Simulated scan of single mutants.
Amino acid sequence: MVNFVLVAGARLGAWAWDEVVPYLRAAGHGVYPLTLSGLAEKQAVPAGQQTHVQDIVAEVERQGLRDVVLVGHSYSGIPVGQAAERIGDRLARVVFVDSSVPTDGESFASVWPDGGAGVKASIAENGGFWPLVPAAHYDGEGLTDEQIARLVRGSTPHPGATLTEPALLAGVLGELPATYIQCLLAGAELDDDVAELLNSKY
């Protein structure tokens, strides 16, 4: 039995894991879906990149968890990867689900092909937040109409500073016990930063 701390991607909260939680609990695991600051029910809380890292570390410590599997989806792979480094021997494994991975000194936005210019412009135009996406954003992702409606209904604008502030790593991410799950709907090719992480491990 391990303890899963589940962190969803940009604009989402702990609710995004509602369909996953029962399966993990039925298998006998501890399950702790987490909403990051500035999102969902914590929408009013100011947040930067390191706020999100601390949210994850604090949840592990608050719950007194050991044998922790940190799971990060999409954007949240960046704070999850940093938190994995900081929880020390509490960590059993970090799992990146079709996610970004942290690179020391780089932000979520900076690794985009345009260097993050589009993301930064969108944040500037929307009061410091990355805006919501329409239902059409989820076309072709194998989701039902009901699932798409739930994503649109539950999403909140994402605090921009978490996307533009750099990750801070003390060591080499590839030295952590890690699994990367690449969803084929996202394409067969890995991002350069993900390929580098995998190549450092195998």
Score class of each variant (00 low, 15 high):
residue 21 V to R: 11
residue 23 Y to I: 06
residue 23 Y to E: 15
residue 24 L to K: 06
residue 26 A to L: 13
residue 27 A to G: 10
residue 29 H to Y: 10
residue 35 T to E: 10
residue 38 G to W: 01
residue 42 K to R: 15
residue 44 A to S: 13
residue 45 V to N: 07
residue 45 V to K: 11
residue 46 P to G: 15
residue 47 A to G: 08
residue 49 Q to P: 03
residue 50 Q to T: 00
residue 51 T to Y: 03
residue 53 V to W: 02
residue 53 V to Q: 06
residue 54 Q to R: 15
residue 55 D to Q: 06
residue 56 I to M: 02
residue 57 V to E: 01
residue 58 A to C: 06
residue 61 E to T: 06
residue 63 Q to N: 08
residue 64 G to N: 00
residue 66 R to A: 13
residue 67 D to H: 12
residue 67 D to F: 09
residue 68 V to C: 10
residue 68 V to T: 03
residue 68 V to S: 02
residue 69 V to N: 05
residue 69 V to D: 05
residue 69 V to L: 11
residue 73 H to Y: 09
residue 74 S to F: 04
residue 75 Y to R: 01
residue 77 G to A: 07
residue 78 I to N: 07
residue 80 V to W: 13
residue 80 V to P: 11
residue 81 G to Q: 03
residue 82 Q to Y: 00
residue 82 Q to M: 15
residue 83 A to S: 08
residue 85 E to D: 09
residue 88 G to D: 05
residue 90 R to I: 00
residue 90 R to V: 02
residue 92 A to E: 14
residue 94 V to W: 14
residue 96 F to H: 07
residue 97 V to C: 13
residue 98 D to E: 13
residue 99 S to E: 01
residue 99 S to A: 15
residue 100 S to V: 03
residue 102 P to C: 07
residue 102 P to H: 09
residue 103 T to W: 13
residue 104 D to F: 14
residue 106 E to P: 02
residue 107 S to T: 02
residue 107 S to A: 03
residue 109 A to G: 02
residue 110 S to C: 06
residue 110 S to M: 04
residue 111 V to M: 09
residue 111 V to R: 14
residue 114 D to N: 12
residue 115 G to C: 10
residue 116 G to Y: 13
residue 118 G to W: 00
residue 119 V to N: 05
residue 124 A to Q: 07
residue 125 E to R: 13
residue 127 G to R: 13
residue 127 G to V: 06
residue 128 G to N: 03
residue 128 G to M: 03
residue 128 G to C: 05
residue 129 F to W: 09
residue 129 F to R: 15
residue 132 L to H: 08
residue 132 L to S: 11
residue 133 V to I: 03
residue 133 V to T: 07
residue 136 A to P: 04
residue 138 Y to I: 01
